[in-house]
């Protein structure tokens, strides 16, 4: 099996749409380790990529007023047991454009793998970007994943990102996303992670509401079992009149897992308002009993509750 076929197989198993990669009017970028295996662009989208010593560097631009009809599919991964992949992404959405990026990062055999993502995203005036990122790290937990992103949203721009890692092991995850929202800009950052064994999860997401009437939401859902651990830091700054922000963190712990939530709220303008809520605990007893009264076993009830919060 070729490396591309093997990666696409893992991509499909991780929930990726293989059909979309074959479509004529859908853009995609597929990279294994530091090899660029497949790429397709469409009208209105400029993609400039090159292989580096340890990964891929890509510059992606959605041209002014272009509304991308189909999502842009990204597939990154390392198929070997050991390896390093560094992805450098510069994404720019020009004025009044819109695009949805769907990224699958697959490391099905990882035993000593390092994946580093360094992204800079510029959302132009009135532009909208959706970024959905799903990871699959395999069953061994031998992986370190360090995604970092700096996002700037211009006036009336919108940026929605969600990160999902709920199947298989996590390994060591260290997310660091920072978003700055201009006037009337809107952003929502969502992360859902399920930790097992000795997985270590660190999530730091920061939203600076710099422009008047900017709005931001940081929503994090983490479930932990065995001896896994998580530290979730949600930072929101309200620095302009009319800015509205909210940090919402929920962590469910089982067994000997350890969870920590650090919501940081900083308001420098009296007309801004930022709120937060954080809940850490075991599975809710009333929820359990309600589901058990519907005939579910305790194990089935926990499964339904955990899957629900990670959905």
């Amino acid at each position: 099996m070729s490396e591309l076929d093997a990666l696409l197989k893992a991509f499909g198993e991780a929930g990726g749409d293989k059909g979309a990669l074959a479509s004529e009017d859908t853009a995609h970028l597929v990279a294994s380790g530091h090899k660029l295996l497949s790429m397709k662009s469409v009208e209105g989208l400029e993609v400039d990529t090159h292989e580096t010593l340890s990964g891929i560097s890509a510059k992606v631009t959605v041209k002014e007023d272009v509304k991308m009809k189909n999502p842009v599919h990204l597939c990154f991964g390392v198929l070997h047991k050991k390896g390093t992949q560094k992805i450098k992404m510069d994404v720019k959405l020009e004025k009044n454009s819109s695009a949805h990026f769907i990224a699958h990062c697959v490391f099905p055999n990882a035993q000593k793998v390092r994946h580093i993502m360094d992204a800079v995203v510029e959302i132009g005036e009135g532009a909208e970007m959706r970024y959905s990122e799903t990871h699959y790290h395999g069953p061994y937990g031998g992986i370190e994943v360090v995604p970092k992103a700096v996002v700037r949203i211009a006036q009336n721009g919108r940026y929605f990102a969600d990160f999902t890692l709920i199947d298989g092991r996590v390994g060591a995850l260290d997310i660091d996303y920072a978003v700055e929202a201009g006037e009337n800009a809107v952003t929502e950052l969502t992360a859902r992670v399920f930790g097992h064994a000795n997985d270590e999860i660190k999530i730091k997401e920061s939203v600076v509401l710099a422009g008047e009437n900017a709005r931001g939401l940081i929503k994090t859902r983490v479930a932990l079992e065995d001896e896994s651990s998580a530290e979730v830091t949600g930072i929101t700054e309200g620095n302009a009149a009319g800015a509205r922000g909210h940090v919402d963190c929920m962590e469910i712990v089982k067994d000997k897992a350890v969870a920590k939530a650090i919501p940081i709220v900083n308001v420098t303008n009296p007309l801004a308002k930022v709120t937060h809520e954080a809940a850490i605990g075991s599975v809710d007893k009333r929820q359990m009993e309600t589901l058990m009264a519907h005939g579910l076993t305790p194990e089935e009830a926990v499964d339904v509750i955990v899957k629900g919060i990670l959905k």
Partner: peptide, 24 residues
Amino acid sequence: LKVHERATLGITMAWQEPVRFEGI
């Protein structure tokens, strides 16, 4: 018997203040 064992026999209950479930 535990709650789910009683439910399996055919007893169930609607609570006075039903709980909420995220994602269901």
